[in-house]
Amino acid sequence: MTAGIAVDIGLAALVAAMALWTILVRDAYAAVIGFIGYGLLLALVWVRLDAVDVALTEAAIGGGVTGVLLLRAVGALHRGAAPLEDGPPPGPATRRIAALACAAVAAGLAFVVLGVSGPAPTLAPLAAEHLPATGLKNPVTGVLLAFRALDTLLEKVVLLLALIGIWSLSPDGAWGGRPTLGRPGRASDTLRFLAQLLPPVGIVVGIHVLWVGANAPGGAFQGGAVLAAMWILAMMAGLSPVPAIGRPWLRAALVIGPLAFLAVGVAGIFIADGFLAYPPAFAKPLILAIEAAITLSIAVTLAMMVAGPPQRPGAP
């Protein structure tokens, strides 16, 4: 078991070092690269913690899609003119006090989290006991789609709201128009080649991740993020046009997940024990149907979030 411990210590040290690098390095571009590395290492930590569902989410969303977003931002913000600053950077005395205070918070947290003795409180047995009623075998999917389904439903709305918030930042004339992704017409042959070869594989992988999510690690978030990445790649390479935000099919794809979730939830009032309850006989097919719809919505929402606010008027 000592080899495992050595790996854990090395991994934890690397994650902390990457985090420090991200904070301390002078160049913003280097900080973003450090952050992406941090996200990928963190995904490994989740594997070590036996939380493979989280690992997949962290790798796909925390490391992957966030990385694309940040790289685009650092390109837009730190090229040419001086970067935006919100007030002057604090002096050395403030830094020292802040460092001390933050170290104290970290120490307090470590003390509280690690200082627990006796049996750890857990809901795992309860979740395992009720999992058969959902027809699923992956308990995390059970929590997300059944036991705490309201969290997941509201969080879908949060995702849509963030997209509306991003769209609201468009210039007045561009509302309803298209976001820009990449440099239109200037994508290199290499990128186009990659964008032709990768998406068929990626789509299969995304759907596979969604499908196995019922029984093994995976699910709507992770599958949706993979699909989103494929679409982003195709749009950046210019193979698929970035849609105008007013397009009806786009709007339909955005809302189909939350609406399907809601519809099944409301139906539960009449055919099962209440709102967001599933009739035991049909629980698994219903949950899979919801997940399929959510995956599509997540993929489209994530990709449009990366594309950003519309910049130019759409085609009439």
Binding site: L123, A146, D273, G274, F275, A277, Y278
Partner: peptide, 13 residues
Amino acid sequence: HYAVGGWAPPLGL
């Protein structure tokens, strides 16, 4: 009060 989905706390909401 209303237990969402019929799942009572602590497992449900």
